[in-house]
């Protein structure tokens, strides 16, 4: 038999090394995709020479703003193991309502609550389908993706609606202290989402439901309320995105607006390291994911890559980034 003291010493040094390794891994996991975002930024700066100009940074963050807002809601949904495919359509319907509301004489600001309200309403319908009718999230939101798109077209009589004197146009075009309102709203959305997910009872219940629905039910968590909330929240965020979009464009079009936005939002969440089966992830990762997507779009234009190649490169970057992430944290990754 081996000398006890000797094995003890070996175990101690092994443990110290293992602990160091774990600490490094933890740091890597916390940073997530941030290094990739920074590398992309540096790369585009080297190739174009103007990526990091204040003007361009402002453009990139504004480009990222609406997707970030949608992805905040999507993070909550995916944390429960679900998916919300309808956010692009809800955004279009909300933007229509925002512009139509803004045309009300002397009360044009009502466009904003209208947009938020209709987003929340559609979101709650999705939530009810998942929570009470027990439809799989993919199917119920696939249905609303199509149906709400129809509603968006119906709202404007299948035309583009305009308001050149939109009372809340400052949201889309103004800024305070040189920071665009769009960026401020997106950042506040991230903070609010983080607060909900990490600092409230509801947040604990969201992670618990996504991690183990059976155990959550047995522990007395109202799982139906969690589903209703996350889809409602996602709808609300899409409504906010609709108002932001209307404010930026002074117009809305039910057919084109928000097409395939849901895919960018999902990509941001996945790039951010949130597990597709639920229970693991953070909204800060989502923010970085949304920025990576915006940086790619912007940078590829700066460098002069053609539209077709932009698609191909964006898709590949998403696949490679997530594959790298899985490789890096192999064993614990469950995307």
């Amino acid at each position: 038999m081996v000398n006890e003291a000797q094995t003890g010493a070996i175990a101690e040094s092994d443990k110290a090394a293992a602990n160091r390794k774990m600490l490094i891994q933890q740091i890597i996991r916390t940073l997530g995709m941030l290094p990739i975002l920074i590398l992309l930024g540096i790369g585009f700066q080297l190739m174009s020479g103007r990526f990091f100009s204040p003007n361009n940074i402002s453009i990139v963050t504004q480009q990222a703003a609406i997707n970030t807002v949608l992805a905040c809601g999507m993070t909550a949904v995916i944390l429960t193991g679900g998916i919300d495919l309808s956010v692009g359509s809800i955004l279009a319907a909300s933007a229509m309502v925002a512009v139509l509301g803004s045309l009300i004489p002397d009360a044009g600001m009502l466009g904003i609550p209208f947009a938020l309200g209709i987003g929340l309403l559609f979101g709650l319908i999705n939530g009810a389908l998942v929570a009470f009718v027990r439809l799989p999230p993919f199917i119920s939101t696939l249905g609303s993706l199509t149906a709400v798109r129809g509603v968006a077209r119906l709202l404007g009589g299948d035309t583009t609606v305009f308001n050149s004197s939109l009372p809340f146009a400052f949201i889309g075009n103004g800024s305070i202290f040189h920071i665009p309102w769009l960026v401020i709203i997106a950042f506040l959305s991230v903070i609010a989402t983080w607060l909900i997910l990490r600092r409230t009872v509801l947040g604990v219940h969201i992670y618990a439901t996504g991690g183990n629905e059976n155990a959550a039910r047995l522990a007395g968590i109202k799982v139906w309320a969690v589903y209703l909330f996350v889809y409602g929240f996602s709808g609300l965020m899409a409504g906010l995105g609709g108002a932001m979009s209307a404010a930026r464009l002074f117009a809305a079009n039910g057919t084109q607006l928000g097409q395939s936005y849901e895919l960018d939002a999902i990509a941001a969440v996945i790039l951010g390291g949130t597990s597709f089966v639920g229970g693991v992830g953070s909204v800060w990762g989502t923010l970085i994911g949304a920025l990576i997507i915006a940086v790619l779009s912007n940078g590829l234009v700066l460098v002069g890559v053609s539209d077709i190649w932009q698609y191909i490169i964006k898709g590949l970057v998403i696949i490679v980034a997530v594959a790298l992430d899985r490789f890096r944290s192999s064993g614990s990754a469950r995307t």
């Binding site: 600092r199 409230t200 009872v201 509801l202 947040g203 604990v204 992670y207 618990a208 991690g211 183990n212 059976n214 155990a215 959550a216 047995l218 522990a219 007395g220 968590i221 597990s275 229970g279 693991v280």
Partner: peptide
């Protein structure tokens, strides 16, 4: 299968049944 939340921390698991009672206005 029915008890623990394996991805969550020890603290979160232990508190899961009482977070609601301890919370102030919904905040943990």
């Amino acid at each position: 299968g029915q008890g623990l939340f394996l991805d969550m921390t020890v603290q979160e698991n232990i508190n899961l049944g009482v977070v609601g009672r301890d919370a102030k206005a919904g905040f943990l």
